[in-house]
Nucleic acid binder design. Structure first.
Lengths: 228, 228
DNA sequence: GCTGCTATTGTACAACCGTATAGCAGCGTG
DNA sequence: CACGCTGCTATACGGTTGTACAATAGCAGC
């Protein structure tokens, strides 16, 4: 028999990098299989690792998912923000770059959409995922508030930042979802144009309910309010 | 021994009504358990019926889910449309009623949101669900196009119906999702106000990319188009 | 009241799930 | 080169899943 040089059955890794590898494998599985992808066996196979390792590095599979959610969410937001952060660019231009990055091909992958759906569907059941969602969504909205706030000291009418960011986030999310589910519905450039229209309309004061002085300032109970 | 009057172990039902009952049970399970809710045993239990009955009345469980999707989707759309359909009301008023119905308490149930997520997550895998989605979403957009079209012959600037309906659907969906995931984020009345603002801005011509004559008319390849 | 159609049940089955645990083995340390 | 810490594997276990199929029984028609 030839002297078979057998490589080791497995390689050890420090917990930190192994955890990261497991998170990456989880995201890959979610991309490919959606909900069916988050079994310990599939994730383990994707990471080239035994299934039992997951419960060894994470208290449970749901903790792994929450960590994956946080990693993906923060990574995407950072990527978009970095693309938007252009020196010597007007606030309007920065917003436009934010929109463009939001509808880049990499963001419109159906696998990414399915991954997101899995995370969303766990929010109401899993407290850990819920916490990650609250944190990352707050960061997302904060980014939008920051960009919108930079428009503010110009000659644009004064509007309330928080509701404006919520409305813009809703528009972006809605367009992203529709584009992800039905890519032939419209082109990314059209989505960007629609968002830019929204920005311009905001700056022209075309959204009265967002202007300061509108009867939605605090938690006051005033149902069925009509615009004066 | 007393003469125990034993009721029959089960009752027969014509296939049509049994199918409907199974669909209703499926929706109830999805509401309560989300993704975990669509096991044949849970659905059978909810319908007071043996698990095997499902495969007897439906070719597979995924066919049952597609049927449930269609039922729920059409039911909701009809309910909203009926609420919007008010005689002797201006087109603007009808749109407002559509918005109000879209953010009624019954529509903001977290269980309903989770149900929707399950359907969405199956679109890319299950052709049957995909077909239902395409059909129902087309109906939804057609309803919006109809309402938006009624604004048209007035003194409002001419805009393209289809993209406008897509944009409005995106705004409605985005707000609905955010409201469903985080009910404390904003109040339904605020969402309605934001949608009304959108309508008004549209009628004021504040969305140039939606006006006729904008360089997005057909499938012409014109990437990165800038507003002139 | 009996008969026959078929809706319905109950069980069996193989595959999968997450978790627990005992023991193997990589690899830094001496 | 041997030791030993511990990352890692492998297996076992109780549970759930969807589907298949033979047997049962409701109930309509005669």
């Amino acid at each position: 028999m030839g002297k078979e040089q057998q490589q080791p059955k497995f390689r050890r890794a420090p917990p930190t990098v192994r955890r990261e590898a497991l998170i990456e494998a989880t995201l890959a599985c979610l991309r490919k299989w959606g909900h069916e992808g988050l079994s310990v066996r599939r994730i383990g196979a994707a990471a080239g690792v035994s299934p039992g390792l997951i419960t060894h590095h994470f208290p449970s599979v749901s903790a792994l998912i929450a960590a994956s959610y946080e990693t993906l969410s923060m990574s995407l937001l950072q990527s978009i923000e970095q693309h938007a952060r252009a020196e010597d660019a007007s606030p309007r231009e920065r917003l436009r770059r934010f929109y463009q990055a939001s509808f880049a091909p990499a963001l419109l992958d159906p696998g990414l959409f399915n991954t997101w759906l899995v995370f969303w569907s766990m929010i109401s059941h899993d407290p850990g995922v819920r916490a990650v969602h609250d944190r990352t969504y707050a960061a997302y909205r904060a980014a939008l508030e920051s960009l919108l706030g930079q428009l503010q000291p110009g000659e644009v009418p004064r509007f309330r930042l928080r509701p404006a960011a919520i409305a813009l986030a809703a528009l972006l999310d809605g367009l992203w979802i529709e584009a992800s589910m039905n890519p032939r519905s419209f082109r990314p450039a059209e989505a960007v144009a629609l968002c830019e229209d929204w920005t311009n309309a905001l700056c022209e004061g075309a959204f009265p309910s967002l202007l300061t002085g509108h009867p939605f300032p605090t938690r006051r109970r005033r149902l069925q309010a009509r615009h004066p």
